[in-house]
Write a protein that binds this DNA or RNA. Structure first.
Lengths: 93, 93
DNA sequence: TAAACTACTTTATTTTATAAACCAAATTAT
DNA sequence: ATAATTTGGTTTATAAAATAAAGTAGTTTA
């Protein structure tokens, strides 16, 4: 049995990737609201996905406030595709 | 976003459930070989699925040796169905 | 100008997963 | 006969992950 990419096989990280699949980009606050995650948890998981190169993170100051924007990368998309492939084998779907 | 049943959202437990989906029942040793899990890890995860009522576990002595046999329960099947449903929403599949 | 809020990050705690060690009985080798 | 090895596990300890709590830097509101 193939292994499920442990970086993607986490409730919150999978939710983040899922959200980023359907939008061009998304900011920290929006992801936080959608996932109902705590800011701390979200910060950590975004950092992990970023380190892995699965998402790109841009930090800027917009109207005096910081803003963190995330988008899925090609590498992330590929990894997610592979994850889905393995999952389909597991679940016969 | 709905949450993914944490009891099922674990690599090894999902693999166990996956295997049990396609067979009437399966014994410890066979599951261990298929999943390539260590006996300790497998023992713990089977216990968790059993406690949750997702699988039924039968222990017997067969030809002087112990044998642990597992099978998926109706409750487990339902939980897995729900898990798949949520996952499909996440992944747009 | 002090309190409260925004948008986070860092650190600590809890939970989960995994590995290592152990157990009892059976089998094999000496 | 008995010592070493194997089988089929369980229990306990360690590592990793997830989550929560606390902290930071600056902003807005009262």
């Amino acid at each position: 049995m193939k292994e499920l990419d442990p970086l993607l096989h986490s409730q919150l990280r999978l939710a983040i990737m899922s959200l980023l699949l359907s939008v061009e980009e998304a900011d920290f606050v929006w992801i936080k609201e959608k996932t109902e995650a705590t800011a701390g948890n979200l910060s950590v998981q975004i950092e992990k996905l970023s380190e892995a190169g699965y998402i790109a993170v841009r930090k800027e100051i917009i109207g005096k406030k910081p803003r963190t924007t995330c988008s899925i990368t090609e590498k992330g998309r590929t990894a997610l595709d592979e994850y889905v492939k393995v999952l389909k084998e597991y679940l016969h779907i």
